[in-house]
Computed example of a mutant assay.
Amino acid sequence: MTQTLPLALLQQAATRGAATALRYKRLGIWHPRSWRQLADEVGRLAAALQQSGFAREDDLLIISQARAEALLLALAAQWLGGSVTLLDPDLDLRPLLRRLQPAFVLAEAEAGVQQVREAQSPARLLLFLDGRGLDAGADPTLTAYETWLAGTLAAAPAHVAESTSTAFVFHDTDDQPPRRLSHGQLLEGARKLLARERLGPDEEALAARVFAASGQARYLLTPWLSAGFCLNFPEALATRDTDRRELGPTLVLGTRESYARLEFWARERLPLPGTLSHRLYHWAMAPGGNRVRRWLGHWLIRRPLLDVLGMSRLRVPLLVGPALTPQSAEFFASLGVRPGNWQEPGSQHASAGAPTRLLPQSV
């Protein structure tokens, strides 16, 4: 049985090496990567980290939105037996950074780099993905991710992580201790999710949210490595809705807030009240009705709305955290989308039993 996240990656590379593992979008073009390519790159990244002084039980701090580079570097740190701390770039992180004093940091853009500098962190390695606004020459510890990786020629080092090793560290609030998730905890949870949701290698998932949430690690990243499906990264947060429509993912992971955002976005596109189209919408979306009414409602209303939302192929909608508001639940249920609610362990909202999964009903 697979014991760590990097070993899960290596297993997928050995069994499904040529299959598409990941896609990322740059300048409007999707770039696919196979499992074998990902395993090779993570091995190179592990060698680069080792050359930079990263060792077992060190921590890599990542300040980034969902980016493929951030994910692969995280796996490389875990390959070496280290842990990964994920932080949200949209927050004021300076008090936390002053306390953590990270030695190894990946910051997506200038704002993250600036926060590390203002926290007077003694970073031995400070990598960035987007160099706009940065003067890398003024700081010897500041290096572009691509330049840093290109300078590594060493072979992949030995994999040293263990099942009990910490894989991810999450800081929810300053007054609470950090949450640490081991490789074993993540993989055990992924096996339960795969069995309950019947996830397999044919799924298409979209990684549209910031990684700084344990739900992403538990219910998206680890299941991706375990099941071997394709994980897609939008070009930017602003393009995620367009990219979702292009892809038509079969698996979506969201929170109450992200589902509410989609609901608001869809309602803005509904017919104006008082119009014939608006009356047709309410007639078609009303529960029940005969077969003809359901058929017309599907093709005239539900299917176009699902296309707009990028959910026309959706099979597994997942919800992490608090349940949807009654209004959102009713709206998505009218489209045949009923997110399965997976509570974080220890959440005050979590039930004592296993997570309840409500499958989308056909319409």
Rank of each mutant, 00 (worst) to 15 (best):
residue 71 L to G: 00
residue 71 L to P: 00
residue 72 L to A: 04
residue 72 L to W: 13
residue 73 L to E: 08
residue 73 L to H: 06
residue 74 A to C: 07
residue 75 L to V: 03
residue 75 L to W: 13
residue 75 L to E: 03
residue 76 A to S: 10
residue 78 Q to E: 06
residue 78 Q to L: 02
residue 78 Q to H: 00
residue 79 W to F: 05
residue 80 L to G: 01
residue 80 L to T: 01
residue 81 G to P: 03
residue 82 G to V: 08
residue 82 G to I: 02
residue 83 S to L: 00
residue 83 S to P: 00
residue 83 S to Y: 02
residue 84 V to D: 01
residue 85 T to S: 14
residue 86 L to E: 02
residue 86 L to V: 02
residue 86 L to Q: 03
residue 86 L to G: 01
residue 89 P to R: 00
residue 90 D to P: 00
residue 90 D to N: 10
residue 91 L to Y: 06
residue 92 D to A: 15
residue 92 D to N: 15
residue 92 D to R: 13
residue 93 L to M: 09
residue 94 R to A: 07
residue 94 R to T: 15
residue 95 P to T: 10
residue 95 P to A: 12
residue 96 L to W: 08
residue 97 L to N: 08
residue 98 R to I: 01
residue 98 R to N: 06
residue 100 L to D: 00
residue 101 Q to I: 05
residue 101 Q to L: 13
residue 101 Q to G: 05
residue 102 P to C: 09
residue 102 P to K: 08
residue 103 A to L: 15
residue 103 A to Q: 15
residue 103 A to M: 11
residue 104 F to W: 13
residue 105 V to K: 07
residue 106 L to N: 04
residue 106 L to R: 02
residue 107 A to R: 13
residue 107 A to F: 11
residue 108 E to Y: 04
residue 109 A to T: 06
residue 110 E to M: 13
residue 110 E to V: 12
residue 111 A to Y: 05
residue 111 A to F: 06
residue 112 G to P: 06
residue 112 G to M: 10
residue 113 V to C: 10
residue 116 V to D: 05
residue 116 V to T: 12
residue 116 V to E: 03
residue 117 R to E: 13
residue 117 R to A: 14
residue 118 E to S: 12
residue 118 E to F: 14
residue 119 A to P: 06
residue 120 Q to I: 09
residue 120 Q to E: 15
residue 120 Q to V: 11
residue 120 Q to R: 15
residue 124 R to F: 03
residue 125 L to Q: 11
residue 125 L to Y: 08
residue 125 L to E: 10
residue 126 L to T: 09
residue 127 L to S: 04
residue 128 F to H: 15
residue 128 F to Q: 01
residue 129 L to N: 02
residue 130 D to Q: 14
residue 132 R to S: 11
residue 132 R to G: 08
residue 133 G to D: 10
residue 139 D to L: 13
residue 140 P to Q: 09
residue 140 P to I: 03
residue 140 P to F: 11
residue 141 T to L: 01
residue 142 L to I: 06
residue 143 T to Q: 15
residue 143 T to Y: 04
residue 143 T to F: 07
residue 144 A to D: 11
residue 144 A to H: 14
residue 144 A to P: 05
residue 145 Y to Q: 05
residue 145 Y to S: 00
residue 146 E to Y: 00
residue 146 E to V: 09
residue 147 T to I: 03
residue 147 T to D: 14
residue 147 T to C: 03
residue 147 T to E: 13
residue 151 G to K: 11
residue 151 G to A: 12
residue 151 G to F: 08
residue 153 L to K: 10
residue 153 L to R: 14
residue 153 L to N: 13
residue 154 A to H: 08
residue 155 A to N: 07
residue 155 A to T: 14
residue 156 A to D: 02
residue 158 A to D: 13
residue 159 H to F: 10
residue 160 V to P: 01
residue 160 V to Y: 10
residue 160 V to H: 08
residue 161 A to Y: 09
residue 161 A to D: 01
residue 161 A to M: 07
residue 162 E to H: 11
residue 163 S to I: 06
residue 163 S to T: 08
residue 164 T to M: 08
residue 165 S to L: 00
residue 165 S to K: 00
residue 165 S to V: 00
residue 166 T to H: 04
residue 169 V to S: 08
residue 172 D to G: 03
residue 173 T to N: 12
residue 173 T to C: 09
residue 174 D to T: 10
residue 174 D to S: 14
residue 174 D to N: 13
residue 175 D to G: 01
residue 175 D to H: 12
residue 175 D to R: 12
residue 175 D to A: 14
residue 175 D to E: 15
